[in-house]
Amino acid sequence: MKMIKRAGLTRTGSAFGGTLVAGLGLALLPDPAAAQAANGSAVTGSVTAVVGTAEGTPDQPVAVEHDAENGTFSLVFENDYFADTDRHYTNGFRFSYMTPPGGDPQWLRDAVGAIPFTGFGGDIRVVWSLGQNMYTPRDTSLRNPDPDDRPYAGWLYGSVGVIAETGGVLDQIELSLGIVGPSSLAEQTQKGVHELISSDDPQGWDTQLKDEPIVQLTYQKSWRALAAGSAWGFAADVTPHAGFALGNAFTYANTGVTFRLGQDLPRDYGPPRISPSLPGSTYFRPTDSWGWYLFAGVDGRAVARNIFLDGNTWKDSRSVDKKPLVGDLQAGLAITINGARIAYTHVIRSKEFDGQDQHDEFGALSVSFNF
Rank of each mutant, 00 (worst) to 15 (best):
G131S: 07
A111C: 00
D268G: 12
D288T: 12
D299F: 00
L333D: 03
E195N: 14
T48Y: 05
L278T: 09
K351Q: 15
Q356F: 11
I115P: 06
S317K: 09
L9Y: 01
R301I: 00
L156F: 10
D321G: 00
V160Y: 03
Q263F: 01
P271C: 01
P32T: 00
P271H: 10
K5F: 02
P145Y: 10
D123V: 00
R11D: 14
H194R: 15
G181Q: 04
G131L: 08
T53W: 12
K351G: 14
D59H: 03
I337M: 15
S289I: 01
F259V: 08
P279A: 05
G291A: 07
R260G: 01
L9F: 02
L365Y: 10
N70V: 02
W205E: 13
D148I: 04
D123F: 01
P272G: 02
H241Y: 09
E165K: 01
F120L: 00
S281K: 03
R305F: 01
F369D: 07
F16G: 00
Q208R: 10
I124M: 09
L261E: 04
F244C: 04
E174M: 12
G291S: 06
M134D: 04
A153N: 14
L261N: 03
Q358S: 05
E352C: 09
S350E: 13
G178L: 09
N133Y: 03
E55R: 09
V127Q: 00
D264Y: 09
P213Q: 11
I337P: 00
M1R: 11
R125M: 01
R273N: 14
F353H: 08
G229R: 09
G103P: 00
L309P: 06
V169E: 07
D84M: 03
E165P: 00
W205Y: 11
G18L: 03
A27G: 07
G291K: 03
Q60S: 15
G56M: 04
F371N: 08
S176N: 09
F259M: 11
L156R: 12
L108G: 01
W290H: 02
T258P: 02
E165W: 00
P137I: 10
W107S: 04
L29A: 15
N306T: 06
L177Y: 05
S289N: 15
F73S: 05
W223M: 05
M3N: 11
T85E: 15
V303S: 08
V367M: 12
R224S: 11
D316E: 09
D201K: 15
T239W: 04
R267L: 15
R138H: 11
I115E: 00
W205H: 14
L26A: 13
P151G: 11
K221T: 03
A49S: 13
W232S: 09
S277Q: 09
N312Q: 06
L209V: 10
D31C: 07
T19L: 07
R318V: 02
A164P: 03
V347S: 07
V238I: 14
Y157T: 02
I163H: 01
Q188D: 10
A340K: 00
P151D: 08
T282H: 11
T255V: 02
N312M: 12
G256C: 06
V62F: 04
M134H: 13
S222P: 07
N370H: 14
T140I: 13
